[in-house]
């Protein structure tokens, strides 16, 4: 099964998000994956900049703790592609910090899987 019949994520420049994102390109996917954790940086590390209302609302959302990229999209109802672009811009300006998931490596996987297994057992019996 090949499974490609031409569906692509809508290019941001075609729609209103263009306005929001000022036409910036798509960021590096590895660093803003669905489960990359994001939080606002300390005020003094931020470069002074005028943020768009959308950037500001994402920054506000991230200021009280860590959320994954997917959760930020879920809470704001922005399309994922738009969220990624806005976050990339915020990161560029030093406004947010990100914790990408670890690269997959077999030994690391094993430790993580053991931790997940023990956690599930502890929680659900």
């Amino acid at each position: 099964m090949t499974g490609h019949d031409g569906w692509e994520p809508e290019a941001p420049e075609l729609v209103r998000p263009y306005v929001i994102t000022k036409g910036r390109g798509l960021p590096d996917e590895e660093h803003l994956s669905l489960i990359t954790l994001v939080t606002a940086s300390a005020e003094d590390t931020r470069r002074p900049a005028r943020l768009s209302p959308e950037e500001q609302s994402l920054l506000d959302l991230c200021s009280a703790g860590y959320l994954s990229v997917a959760e930020i999209a879920g809470h704001t109802h922005f399309p994922l592609g738009v969220v990624r672009i806005l976050l990339a811009s915020l990161k560029e300006g030093g406004h947010i910090m990100t914790r990408p998931p670890v690269a997959r490596a077999r030994p690391a996987d094993k430790e993580i899987l053991e931790e997940v297994l023990n956690g599930l057992r502890a929680k659900f019996g």
Binding site: L37, A64, H75, I112, V116
Partner: peptide, 24 residues
């Protein structure tokens, strides 16, 4: 689109600064 929803403490990832996120 517009203003950010206000979230409670429990909405955020506990101990996010040291967490490794995985997915299934």
């Amino acid at each position: 689109m517009g203003s950010a929803p206000s979230l409670g403490e429990r909405d955020y990832v506990r101990g996010g600064a040291t967490q490794t996120a995985v997915k299934i």
